[in-house]
Design a protein around this nucleic acid. Structure first.
Lengths: 193, 193
DNA sequence: TAGCCTAGAGAACGGACGTTCTCAGCGCCA
DNA sequence: TGGCGCTGAGAACGTCCGTTCTCTAGGCTA
């Protein structure tokens, strides 16, 4: 048996790394813990990923795609542009309620490594910029101005941070309510133009 | 000369630790770097603080008092309750514009140590709860409901996170605008009751 | 002046971590 | 069958960190 195909092992390692990093923090999870949990030899680990930093970057890349998928799934529910924007906060509420929720990976990673690892800080910045751009697109479809998109993105960030630290999911509902108020306020104003 | 008084050295160490921890992250700053920067012997360091964790807790305690002072100073500018609430976001804008701004210490520390050090996670939670309570008090004085206070607090958190990651200070202005909209929306609604 | 207490400088210790190396075992092809 | 190359297991290496220990020098008291 030629061991498992590289791609399968890669996925396994990335999945395990994502779970452990998210639960305990990146610096707290050594390559050896990863090896043990994933059932892979250290040699193979370093064949697949040249260094821990490369591995971390791939984990973040996967998280980014996962996040984008969640956003698109929420937005795809259809309805009015207003509904589609608010669906993002409903998605947040479901996420916050998961047992192992511990905040936004990117915010946590920025706090842990942003100061010492510029590459990682850049990845986090790109991810957040991408989300902001998506929100701006949805806001534009709703006929709202870019400033509303900024406000809605800030609400989403604040909800994630607040839910993580407080350990409760209620922030999602409050953010949703605030978003609805902001959207309606702006659309009412433009409607009267 | 009996060396400097303990209290003076304590302050010096705490000031240096705060600066280095904020700039580089806590785990990235060893006790030896602290010793070098503060010009104190390791012996004295461990006489003043029994462990690194105790030192970190004191640094966070000082940051909490500093933050509370900034909030009170902003709020003390007077004006209507609405003005006093919005003054918090003006304070944020000034803070974000400082050269060495790198986000909220508590959010960063939660991301770095929250998963592994429950005591520190607790301190962060307490700090954020205290801020929320203060906002709730100001909202109550403005005649608004507790839900508005939640929304305003989420905006403040989101602004801090967004400004830190993006490296720009514009989030404060957007958060302020959103806060004004939310406040006016609620007060208009209660005014019609 | 003699002895003692304290402080500072830095070595030392124990452990953790990222990364590399060794070595024994096993499949594969000539 | 015999050797080659790859594999996994884990030891080893170099470094760093939190914490403690040692040693030396100097000032204060008697």
């Amino acid at each position: 048996m030629p061991a498992q195909a590289d791609e399968v092992i890669r996925e396994k390692v990335l999945t395990v790394a994502d779970r452990l990093y998210y639960r305990r923090g990146i610096q707290a999870v050594g390559m050896d813990a990863l090896r043990a949990e994933a059932g892979v030899s250290l040699k193979r680990l370093y064949q697949l990923f040249p260094s821990k930093e490369h591995l971390v970057e791939e984990v973040l890349h996967r998280r980014r795609q996962l996040w984008n998928g969640l956003v698109e799934a929420a937005v795809a529910t259809g309805g009015t542009p207003r509904d589609r924007l608010l669906a993002i906060y409903d998605m947040l509420a479901r996420w916050f309620d998961e047992d192992d929720f511990r905040g936004c990976v990117f915010i946590n990673t920025f706090g842990e490594l942003g100061a010492t690892t510029p590459r990682i800080a850049g990845l986090v910045r790109e991810h957040k910029a991408e989300f902001q751009a998506r929100v701006a697109q949805l806001v534009a479809e709703a006929g709202g101005p870019p400033s509303l998109a900024f406000q809605l993105a800030i609400l989403a960030e604040g909800a994630q941070t607040t839910a993580a630290i407080a350990g409760t999911s209620e922030a999602a509902g409050h953010a949703r309510d605030a978003a609805a108020t902001l959207i309606d306020s702006v659309l009412a104003a433009t409607a009267t133009d």
